[in-house]
């Protein structure tokens, strides 16, 4: 792909993101005229702005953690939603709220990241991956093991929420993947996501080397174990932070990287830059649709994402299951 077409795709994607953000600011559960919105008599614009920023960050974070996990495992089905990493983060965050009095943004973020890390660690072992060569025979085992972890963690988390009326009020909305409408404890996770999204870009080179094989990476002077550690840290903290904000969202991290890789023609760094606006636009759009289709109620972004994501997943699977390309062993 030429430099010019890369730049024009990127600009186009950013314009799409701006359009989605504008829609998200303009339309919401409460129908208001443009004039009233701009005068901001209801404080609506401010709350919608906050919500849009959250959706942008979480959407981009999910897309990137999916992209990195897929490249690391060489498995196009690896995504923090499907592999149970998000669910692990959600369970840890809920357990923190249920059993302890800590509920600052930082505490939830830490708990969610630890939960994501534990789920990822369990997954790695259940799927039987070799810590260095990674990809091996985990094409099928990875999503299966992930499904087991996801189901277990979400069931436990839901049980903890349903056991307590106060927990229900606070977290029932969150567990189905909803973008927050009022600012509560989101500042710390938002900051962490922004930092990691920039830092993650600089791991692309290493990660791409690792995808050539652990030996190859080593003989080119990049320690493969360190790459795995860096990337997994990035994935788990991104996933933990986005779960802390918007609950366990599925599908986004699966589909967005698929599209981004297709556009990027073989360069991980380009795929990374494409995945950022695509992921952000997708979640902002899902959130806006959810607020508009069932007025005055709301359908959570997570549910919209799953509704649209289901059919899209089937398309991806058809593509993946077609022989060759990503050869599954």
């Amino acid at each position: 792909m030429s430099r010019a077409s890369f730049a024009s795709i990127l600009v186009l994607l950013c314009l799409v993101l701006c359009l989605c953000a504008a829609l998200s600011l303009r339309f919401g559960a409460a129908p208001v005229t443009l004039g009233a919105l701009l005068n901001d008599t209801l404080g609506l614009l401010e709350s919608r702005m906050f919500r849009t920023v959250c959706a942008i960050c979480v959407g981009a974070a999910m897309a990137i953690s999916g992209l990195m996990l897929q490249t690391l495992t060489g498995n196009p089905l690896a995504d923090p939603g499907i592999t149970g990493i998000n669910a692990g983060a959600a369970l840890a965050a809920i357990a923190l709220a249920y059993f302890t009095p800590f509920n600052s943004g930082m505490a939830i973020l830490l708990a969610a990241s630890v939960g994501a890390g534990l789920a990822g660690y369990t997954l790695w072992h259940l799927a039987g991956a070799d810590p260095v060569s990674g990809a091996g025979g985990i094409a099928l085992r990875l999503p299966l093991a992930g499904l087991a972890i996801e189901t277990l963690c979400l069931a436990l988390a839901t049980a903890l929420i349903l056991a307590d009326a106060e927990m229900q009020a606070r977290y029932l909305r969150w567990i189905s993947g909803a973008i927050p409408a009022v600012a509560r404890t989101e500042t710390a996770p938002l900051g962490v996501i922004s930092v990691l999204l920039v830092a993650g870009y600089f791991t692309c080179e290493r990660l791409e080397l690792l995808s050539l094989g652990a030996d190859q990476s080593d003989s080119l002077g990049r320690n493969p174990n360190r790459t795995v550690a860096l990337v997994l840290t990035c994935v788990t903290v991104l996933s933990g932070a986005s779960v802390a904000i918007a609950g366990p969202l599925a599908f986004l991290g699966l589909l967005v990287p698929f599209v981004a890789r297709g556009l990027a023609a073989g360069s991980l760094r380009r795929a990374y830059l494409f995945a950022l606006p695509i992921g952000a636009s997708a979640l902002v759009l899902a959130d806006t649709i959810g607020r508009v289709i069932a007025r005055p109620g709301e359908v959570h972004a997570g549910i919209i994402a799953a509704l649209l994501g289901g059919p899209a997943l089937i398309m991806v699977l058809r593509r993946v299951l077609r022989p060759a390309r990503w050869h599954a062993e």
Binding site: G74, A135, E205, E208, L209, S211, L212, G213, D215, Q216, S219, L220, G221, R222, R261, A265, G266, S267, R325, W326, H327
Partner: peptide, 27 residues
């Protein structure tokens, strides 16, 4: 000082020929 090519070139990637060759410049 030393370049190494393993027995089986690892899993196929989406990379272009030039992209792969450029990886050799990493060190």
């Amino acid at each position: 000082q030393i370049a190494f090519l393993p027995q089986e070139p690892p899993m196929l990637t989406d990379m272009t020929v030039e992209g792969l060759v450029a990886k050799g410049r990493t060190p």
